[in-house]
Structures are given as structure tokens and as C-alpha cells.
Amino acid sequence: MARALMSNPGRWAGVGLILLGLCWTLAAQVAWAGDAQHFVRPGSKAATLGGCVEATPFMRRNHMELIKHQRDITVHQGIRGARYSLAGCIDCHVSHTADGQAVAINSKQQFCYACHAFAAVKVDCFDCHAAVPRGGPLSAAASGQGATSERDPRGE
């Protein structure tokens, strides 16, 4: 969250508003406790599972810390597919349309968007990261499936 806030310099005037939003979020957490599955989208893998990689309330408050910590390990040490990898989050939480297409996880009413809009915290993960699983951890060429382009792999 700190990082997301950082990405809005020049909005110091809005700091008061953000603080207000934080209090609101805190209060809302209480309400959310009885509402665990609310933001998990039907049609995502997560909807079929009993829980996240950590307990749900913990994830709610700390997912950004886990992801941030993991990102440094992945980028600098090359550890992939770990428990807290963002790719894993997306894989599990992305929902699909009736014809099986993945829906961008940060789009309206989807998993990331719903809470973040509510908490008024900007997510900038998806400036760089794919918002749907695309291409897998290894290329088709690397996994011996021939060198085809991955342009729009969602389609046929």
C-alpha cells in the first residue's frame, strides 16, 4: 500500500482524504469478516478453494507486503513460482467469461479492482504485469512446443 501511495506524489492535498479512507477501510474490515467470499469472483480457481495461501484476514491486510517481499526475491535471486508470487495470485483469482476467456483481474468488478476501488488505493502492478495469465512461466519454444507466436493467446 505504501508503494501505491508513493506513486501519487503531488497529491499531498489528498493525504487527508486518504487518511479518511484508511479509517473507513479499517472500519470496513470488521464488516468484511463475515463476508469472506465476497470479492472472490465466481469462475475463478479461488472460488473453488477453501482459502488463500494464508488466512483470509491476514491476506487482506498484508498481501502487498508478501507480494513486495516476493518480488525482490524473484527479481534479484531468480526464485520463481513461489508461494507468494503475483503470477500465482492472478492465476488463481482471475475469473473467466462464459466462453472461458480470462477477464483482466484489475478490470471493473474483478478481484483486485473491487477492494482497491473501495479502499481508494491505486494498484500499479498492472502497468507492467499481465492482468490475465498469459504465456505461462516458460515460452512455448522453451517447453518444446514449437516456436509459435504468443500474440493473443487467449484466442484460438
Binding site: 513460482g81 508461494r83 508470487s85 500465482g88 516458460l138 509459435t148
Partner: peptide
Amino acid sequence: MKHPDETIDQGRRDW
């Protein structure tokens, strides 16, 4: 296109 992502990431899937 078939992507190998379904077969990797084993630790997570086990869990």
C-alpha cells in the same frame, strides 16, 4: 495454443 503453465508451479498447486 496450449501453454505449459498448467504443469508448472507445482508447489502452489499441491497446496
